[in-house]
């Protein structure tokens, strides 16, 4: 069960369009971007739904949609809901 849990955490870039989950963690050294993500509510525990992958990553979070580039999408880890 635990092993399966770990396997279900993926960076946002590896999700398929339409896949849903909860943000597990955000790891970035880019302090400025992290602060902006924080203020927008892109935080661990929040439900997320990937909408579009190209040219950048678009996802739904509550009532809002956000776009991040590939570098940041790699930093957002998502626990996939089954």
């Amino acid at each position: 069960m635990q092993i399966k849990d770990i396997a279900e955490i993926l960076p946002l870039v590896e999700l398929k369009c339409g896949q849903k989950g909860k943000i597990a963690s955000v790891h970035t050294k880019n302090h400025e971007a992290l602060k902006k993500l924080m203020a927008m509510g892109i935080l661990p525990g929040i439900k997320i739904n990937l909408i579009q992958k190209f040219p950048s990553y678009v996802f739904q979070l509550g009532q809002s949609q956000y776009a991040v580039d590939k570098e940041l999408a790699e930093c957002i880890l998502v626990r996939i809901s089954t």
Binding site: N30, L37, S56, V58, Q65, Y66, A67, V68, D69, L72
Partner: peptide, 10 residues
């Protein structure tokens, strides 16, 4: 100067 990454609201 780093160009800051893209984070934007749609």
């Amino acid at each position: 100067g780093e160009s800051s990454g893209l984070v934007m609201e749609m």
